[in-house]
Amino acid sequence: MMSGGYTSIDNPKLSGSVPAVPDQGHVTVKFSESNLQTFPPSEAQGKISIAAGPPRDADDTFSKSGSGAGSGSGSDESQPSGWLRPFSIATYKPYFDIDTADVLDRIKDSLFPFRDSFNEKTASNPDLYGPFWICTTLIFVAASIGTFVTYIAHKLKNKEWEYDINLVTWSAGLFYGYVTIVPLGLYVILKYFSAPSGLVPLFCLYGYSLFVFIPALCLSVVPLEIFRWVVAGVAGFMSATFVALNLRAHIKSAGERWFLIVAGIFLLQLALSVALKLYLFTVTV
């Protein structure tokens, strides 16, 4: 029927109409407890502290320990293993992580060769930082002092002087080669005799044993041949004694031939000082 512009349908069962939903009773809906936390929390939980900290996505590379003890599994997985490990920089990083005070203390021990306590002090943390810079310094000192000595000798006799670049290459080959090849050879010999030894401690010992040649090279500027021989002999004796006495305790376990090995080490170190004297400070005009 029509009333006020609206149409009402009297019959509810006309076609096209939606039937009413029967009443199925009262349905109870239960909600589980929410996992959302209230903010701010009412009390501290676990190890959460009130102090402010960096966001979770912040880069904390420089706040981690250099030794890698506190790093996660991700950093360990990125490091190569097996036969690729010796070619990784991370393998040698612990041997360059050393304080300046420790380097100075080890240099001081090398100048007092009769203490024979160097290996005991460096057994737990041998380094390659000191040996590398000692050899590098020796290369430039030997080349510069040798050049200066020849320059003075030529000027005193009013002769023309030319710079010899071979002093740098010869010094680099001598010191880097000596501090690498000799410890490697000694390591193989000690392994053959079943004597306890480590390769890195040998590198460390031989590297610091060369420090005494730095002041010796500086003193060789004095233009007196006998004085230069005395300086070379004293430096060689101190360096050879330092190496031999510190290795004696380890080499004694090699059997009856330990004395021959120690004597060979001593004489080889003396030969280094003689080579420095003959090549660098034998001036011919």
Rank of each mutant, 00 (worst) to 15 (best):
L111Y: 14
I89S: 08
K30M: 01
T122D: 02
E120F: 09
G74F: 13
K13M: 04
E43G: 07
D116G: 08
Y95M: 12
V103S: 11
A123M: 13
G53K: 11
R85S: 03
S34F: 07
V29L: 06
L104R: 04
V103Q: 05
E120T: 15
S34G: 10
P19D: 02
D60K: 14
G16Q: 02
V103H: 02
I50H: 13
D109V: 00
K64E: 14
V29W: 04
F118T: 01
V27A: 12
G68V: 10
E120R: 15
G72H: 06
L14A: 10
I107H: 04
G66R: 15
S71V: 13
G74E: 08
D102V: 12
P113N: 12
G53T: 15
P80G: 02
S78Y: 10
I98L: 07
R56P: 02
V21W: 03
S32E: 15
D76N: 07
D105M: 07
S73M: 13
F96Y: 12
K64S: 08
A58N: 06
F118S: 00
K47R: 14
I50M: 07
K30I: 06
L14V: 05
Q37W: 10
I48H: 09
G46T: 08
I89Y: 10
D97I: 10
A69P: 03
S67N: 11
G53Y: 12
P54S: 07
A123P: 01
N119C: 09
Q45D: 12
G46N: 08
E77R: 14
E33H: 11
P40G: 09
S34P: 10
D23A: 08
P19Y: 03
D57E: 09
F87M: 11
S117Q: 02
D60N: 13
G82C: 00
Y92D: 08
D97T: 09
G16E: 00
K13N: 14
R85E: 05
P19W: 00
N35H: 03
T100Y: 03
V21P: 02
W83A: 01
T100W: 05
Y92C: 04
F96N: 06
S15Q: 12
K13R: 09
G46V: 09
K13G: 09
G66Y: 11
S67I: 09
S15T: 15
D99L: 02
S71A: 14
G82V: 00
G25K: 07
E120A: 09
T28I: 07
S75G: 02
V27S: 10
G72K: 05
D59V: 04
G25I: 00
Q24L: 11
G53L: 06
I98T: 15
V27Y: 07
P22S: 15
S17H: 12
A69L: 03
R106S: 03
D116R: 14
D102W: 01
S15I: 15
S49A: 07
L36I: 10
A101S: 13
I89N: 04
Q24E: 15
S67Y: 13
R106M: 01
